[in-house]
């Protein structure tokens, strides 16, 4: 117990990111990143949804409340959504959620990205970049308060 507490946080703690990827583009993009062996940190847990607009603000808030350090919502580029304009609705929703989170100082922990099925490289870059940003922000404060 004690030994653990003494290890510097930087070594012990890795961000825990939840990524909602739409089935038609971003999930395939993540798949391509894997198949092409683009390296990205193991900080992300991918959840496949049919469209980025399936992601309700309630899902995001719940993930953060339960201790996720970051939430990524990824969908097709504007104009490419399988359901025509699902991602436009998602953009409004996610941006509004961001504003609501801003009041709690959580806005940087939510990201919306457009990643197409051919952008495996971009997927790995986004994850790397987001992981770095979350590392700078530190752990989700919900966990600290809990202790």
């Amino acid at each position: 117990m004690n030994a653990e507490a003494q290890t510097p946080i930087g070594d012990a703690w890795e961000p825990n990111i939840l990524a909602f990827c739409c089935n038609w583009c971003s999930y395939a993009g993540a798949d391509l990143a894997g198949v092409s062996r683009f390296q990205y940190p193991p900080t992300v847990k991918i959840l496949r949804v049919m469209c980025s607009s399936r992601v309700e603000p309630a899902f995001i808030l719940k993930a953060l409340k339960d201790g996720a350090d970051g939430v990524l919502v990824a969908g097709c580029h504007i104009g490419d959504c399988h359901y025509i304009d699902g991602n436009k609705n998602a953009e409004i929703r996610i941006n509004n959620t961001k504003k609501a989170l801003g009041k709690l100082g959580f806005d940087k922990r939510l990201r919306l990205e457009w990643i197409s099925a051919s952008e495996g490289l971009r997927f790995s870059e986004v994850i790397r970049d987001f992981t770095e940003e979350i590392k700078k922000l530190g752990q989700n404060p919900v966990k600290e308060v809990k202790k």
Binding site: E56, A58, F59, L61, L104, F106, V142, K146
Partner: peptide, 17 residues
């Protein structure tokens, strides 16, 4: 309603300082 988004928001903020 709304999958409890307002409840989740209240819940999240209740866990912060």
């Amino acid at each position: 309603a709304h999958l409890g988004v307002f409840t989740e928001l209240a819940n999240l903020s209740s866990k912060l300082n």
